[in-house]
Design a protein around this nucleic acid. Structure first.
Ligand SMILES: NC(=O)c1ccc[n+]([C@@H]2O[C@H](COP(=O)([O-])OP(=O)(O)OC[C@H]3O[C@@H](n4cnc5c(N)ncnc54)[C@H](O)[C@@H]3O)[C@@H](O)[C@H]2O)c1
Ligand SMILES: NC(=O)c1ccc[n+]([C@@H]2O[C@H](COP(=O)([O-])OP(=O)(O)OC[C@H]3O[C@@H](n4cnc5c(N)ncnc54)[C@H](O)[C@@H]3O)[C@@H](O)[C@H]2O)c1
Lengths: 248, 248
DNA sequence: CGCGATTTGTGCACGCCTTCACAAGCGCCT
DNA sequence: AGGCGCTTGTGAAGGCGTGCACAAATCGCG
């Protein structure tokens, strides 16, 4: 049972080592978005960027962005904006992206294959160092330059390769077992694509990506929108020719 | 997002059509999880389930679950729990899953192939009815029983097939253009896998799935955990450049 | 050198969400 | 029939996150 210690009041006394100011979780979730926007801006040759401009590129409110950035210190210049390169460095440092993190992928079916070939990992500081599957017929296969190993080797390889993050792309029925293996191997972060809840020790972080949930949320909004248009209009043709332009 | 009318007292005058009570967004996001847990429970033969039990299966607090469910009416029995079948029906109704929603998938590369073959769609009330790509060499290819069509056919097909949800699995550079095409075709819900922000009219809902963001959030927590264990335990190797004096 | 234009950083208020705690309701057992 | 244990539904409190609005800071220019 994951205990949640609600300790606010950051009591750690004067850490010599950075010892993070505890950033709001919501802020952390947005930092990667800012980072991506900054990289895009950097490629267009921009040296500095205003909170307004960056906020637009990241799709958020500018006040929110400023507050987020203020949590990690003052790296902007009033009257000018933020130095793109400096801000990139800072955010990458906070997110721990200055050191490359080793990732392993478990389950090389449909989805696993796609993930293994995804270049979006390496370009953002992550490196897939090992692939695992339980299916003997898949073990040994080379996928995008990496051999598929048997899940029973995970414990050994994880230590050797200092794997920090495990990605689960197995059927839901196997996910908990895989998570247990990962945890036993010392992996402390898990990204789970299987539609199920994982129970792990409190020191392990789990994030979940569930397609079906996303679709169902969209479905709800479709349902809601349909019931709204049904009320006033009677039947609105919705042949959907033109949309009012919203962009800016 | 859309305008939030804070009203308790939802003023719609006795809608003949359901006309939704406005559920909190946070609740909506959890309903699919409850639904999945309920289906699992149903398969084990359970007739009823307590809030405690369902909450555990869905990985949430039981009070939160009760409050969530209370928003859609009283479908539980005090002293007993919730009727599994009835609750499933209710949640599916609220989410609009009683009617099958047509989905189209744009971009049949690495990821698109995996998505096209995913059976988790159909099993939850969604049906992929069309595949689109801009690459002529891919057009005509049959993937899991469906032909790949050219993106220029999207407008016509979307109307014919009454497509409600579009899934974007193209590179980021093409995503906005694809979104525009979808919007023009009358699609009002988009699930975006490309790492970029989309700008769409306010009546269109967009949800984003971004792997890199998930990994970076995990990376942050790894970083934090590492800096914490560095404090009490003895020698901080300082191999990495940790300086960063925060604070005044 | 000073002034105005610009933009950051933040105090503050407000609303949403979570969580606790408990009364009301229900069924079962005696 | 009555009491008792169990569970739901909800009022209330507190925490968190958001967004406004503005003072402080900086630059460019005359
Ligand atoms: N395919 C998709 O587009 C998609 C999308 C979203 C979510 N998902 C989810 O991702 C997961 C994988 O989907 P998929 O379509 O790739 O399934 P799949 O059946 O194609 O692949 C699953 C893989 O996991 C392996 N596996 C099974 N048990 C294992 C174990 N104990 N240890 C290690 N490996 C094991 C299998 O050998 C197989 O290679 C599922 O949970 C699915 O719901 C898939
Ligand atoms: N592969 C993964 O595991 C993965 C994971 C997460 C996110 N993503 C993201 O998903 C997207 C697709 O990834 P991928 O690996 O499948 O890329 P990919 O290059 O393999 O496939 C992209 C497909 O989109 C098609 N396309 C390009 N422009 C188009 C247009 N204007 N209209 C229609 N189709 C067009 C291409 O022809 C190609 O088939 C990318 O944005 C990527 O960042 C991929």
């Amino acid at each position: 049972m994951s205990q949640q210690r609600h300790g606010s009041t950051p009591g750690h006394g004067a850490g010599a080592v950075p010892a993070f100011p505890d950033l709001p979780e919501a802020t952390i979730a947005r930092l990667p978005e800012y980072l991506r926007a900054l990289h895009n801006l950097g490629e267009t040759g921009a040296d500095t960027v205003s909170s307004e401009g960056l906020a637009a590129a990241a799709g958020v409110n500018s006040a929110k962005l400023r507050k987020d950035l203020s949590h990690l210190g003052s790296y902007g210049t009033r009257g000018v904006g933020y130095d793109v390169t400096l801000l990139i460095e800072q955010i990458e440092y906070v997110l721990g992206l200055d050191q490359r993190r080793a990732v392993c992928l478990v389950g090389l079916g449909n989805l696993g294959h796609a993930l293994a070939g995804y270049d979006g990992f390496a370009s953002r500081g992550f490196k897939i160092v090992a692939l695992f599957d339980a299916d003997e017929s898949k073990v040994g296969e080379i996928i995008h330059g990496l051999p598929v190993r048997h899940i029973s080797d995970l414990g050994r390889v994880a230590v050797e390769e200092k794997i920090a993050i495990g990605v689960i792309a197995t059927p839901a029925g196997a996910a908990q077992a895989v998570a247990d293996v990962l945890v036993d191997a010392g992996v402390t972060s898990i990204l789970n694509f299987a539609p199920c809840v994982l129970s792990v020790p409190s020191n392990v972080d789990v994030r979940k990506v569930d397609l079906a949930i996303e679709l169902q949320i969209l479905s709800f909004h479709e349902h809601r929108k349909a019931s709204l248009t049904a009320l006033p209009g009677g039947r609105s043709a919705t042949t959907a020719g033109d949309q009012e332009a919203v962009g800016s």
